[in-house]
């Protein structure tokens, strides 16, 4: 499954980094603690968080995550958008709270 498929199925907004919509999604990770993501997320994961600052892109890039989904309607800060464009890693947004979007993502990834 690709990032663009998740965008379509979960009706996400693409905030930035559209060049990365073809990235392959291999799973998901949910956390707002950056060290937790750094230590435990895997390459190709979609990361669900409410953090919107630029450092999320440093982590997404270093861990080679597929995309970041901001929950509850949060929008990325300007320098986060810029970094997302530079890295080609999409920042996506949903109005849903973390629990609901995580459940929906889990369902579509489980069913392949």
């Amino acid at each position: 499954m690709k990032v663009k498929d998740i965008v379509e199925k979960l009706q996400l907004t693409v905030c930035s980094g559209a060049a990365g919509l073809e990235r392959e999604v291999k799973g998901g990770y949910v956390s707002d603690l950056l060290s937790d993501v750094m230590g435990n997320a895997n390459e190709g994961n979609v990361w669900l968080t409410l953090q919107t600052h630029k450092n999320i892109m440093a982590i997404a890039s270093l861990k080679e995550l597929a995309a970041v989904i901001l929950v509850k309607g949060y929008q990325p800060e300007e320098d986060t958008r810029n970094e997302s464009e530079t890295e080609g890693i999409p920042v996506l947004s949903t109005s849903l709270p973390t629990f609901e979007i995580a459940g929906a993502l889990f369902e579509i990834l489980k069913n392949g």
């Binding site: 950056l34 060290s35 937790d36 230590g39 953090q51």
Partner: peptide, 16 residues
């Protein structure tokens, strides 16, 4: 507040 400072940094270093 930025999501740092959870006391996981040095343990993460040690593990990796």
């Amino acid at each position: 507040e930025m999501g740092f400072g959870a006391g996981m940094g040095l343990p993460n270093i040690k593990k990796n």
